[in-house]
């Protein structure tokens, strides 16, 4: 198909494609965010995906799988129509925790947790005394591993009933692979909604020890980009749960974002892959992005980068600069 073929598309003959609830939420948030004149303050690390550019995203790609739901009491109550196999890994490897703590009439049960050598992931259920209509997406308080505070990378929550929400969050422990047990402390205080309103007040405390599954890490030097954007991958970490590709290069952290479209040698397409970057110098960034590799026979990732240039104030897109695809071999 070429451009003229597209012009001849008869829009009255188009059959709609199903849009997931998640996609709908992201569109809505992106529209409202773009329309807003509010200035959003990013943390030092900036996680961005094509949807996160315009909305404050609160989850990575879906992680629940109905096949394993029966074996995972809390997870089984979550999304039951998503076939993302990442949950199978979570289910197969997660430790059952079942710690319950109550504060101010609200109980939280930390159900299961999993550590793949670089990433920790925790599922929980929160029961409140009254209904909570707005997603309690954020919390005050700390998540610590071995005494180091972590930022949550992704957080998914689902409403079970009027007063109960179920969630799972993931945090990166280290850029390096860890092969020893870690001590995790999660001490949430006050859950907050998208509009920065406190939805649930309280203070909870969980402590657990997690043993990692085996992960691999290797330094690489794989350039990509073009004359203007000279970047390279410098490390690849492969765990059961997440494969992480680290990169660095010359990008303006404020206005130029690396986006990636990823396929593999089996034809799988990885959707909603966000990149996280940190400014490492004038016009330079370090960053990484993560994908779940669903099949151990997958040998190659085909990564097509695009630089998205945005308006510094509104974050609205000004230009997309496609860069050449590059193949990355896995272990």
């Amino acid at each position: 198909m070429n451009e003229k073929d597209f012009i001849e598309i008869d829009i009255e003959e188009i059959e709609p494609i199903e849009l997931s609830d998640w996609e709908k939420i992201n569109i809505e948030k992106s529209v409202l965010r773009s329309s807003s004149t509010k200035k959003y303050v990013f943390k030092k690390w900036k996680w961005v995906s094509i949807v996160a550019m315009l909305t404050f995203i609160f989850t990575s790609s879906s992680i629940w799988l109905p096949v394993v739901a029966n074996r995972v009491p809390i997870v089984q109550q979550l999304l039951n129509n998503n076939d993302n196999p990442q949950l199978q890994v979570f289910s197969d490897n997660a430790s059952i925790i079942n710690q319950i703590d109550e504060s101010n009439g609200t109980s939280i049960e930390l159900a299961e947790a999993f550590f793949d050598g670089t990433i920790v992931s925790v599922s929980y259920e929160m029961k409140h005394e009254q209904s909570i209509d707005e997603p309690p997406l954020f919390w005050k308080g700390d998540l610590e591993v071995n005494g180091n505070k972590l930022d949550v990378l992704s957080h998914q929550i689902v409403k079970k009933n009027e007063a109960t929400w179920i969630g799972m969050f993931t945090a990166r422990i280290s850029d390096k692979v860890m092969d020893e047990k870690v001590n995790v402390q999660w001490r949430p205080q006050d859950f907050i909604g998208m509009e920065n309103t406190t939805l649930v007040e309280g203070a909870w405390d969980f402590q657990l020890e997690l043993t990692p599954t085996r992960a691999y890490s290797r330094k690489v030097n794989i350039p990509f980009g073009n004359d203007q954007y000279q970047l390279f991958y410098n490390q690849i970490t492969e765990g059961k749960y997440i494969t992480t590709l680290y990169f660095e290069g010359n990008l303006d952290w404020e206005t130029e974002f690396l986006m990636v479209d990823i396929k593999d040698n089996l034809g799988n397409v990885y959707e909603n892959v966000g990149t996280t970057t940190i400014k490492s110098g004038s016009g330079r960034v370090n960053g990484y992005f993560e994908v779940f590799i669903p099949d151990s026979t997958i040998r190659t990732l085909i990564i097509t980068p695009t630089i998205r240039i945005v308006d510094e104030k509104t974050l609205e897109r000004k230009e997309l600069v496609p860069l050449p695809s590059i193949n990355i071999s896995l272990k």
Binding site: F6, I9, I11, I14, E15, P16, I17, E18, L19, E23, K24, N26, I27, I50, V51, M53, M259, V260, D261, K263, V269, E271, N272, T304, T306, R308, R317, L320
Partner: peptide, 22 residues
């Protein structure tokens, strides 16, 4: 209308997921 819009956009921009969402 989301599904309708997606169907049209996908017809033109497939398989560029980034561009489709954008």
């Amino acid at each position: 209308y989301g599904g309708y819009v997606k169907a049209i956009v996908v017809k033109v921009l497939q398989p560029n997921q980034t561009a489709i969402e954008e």
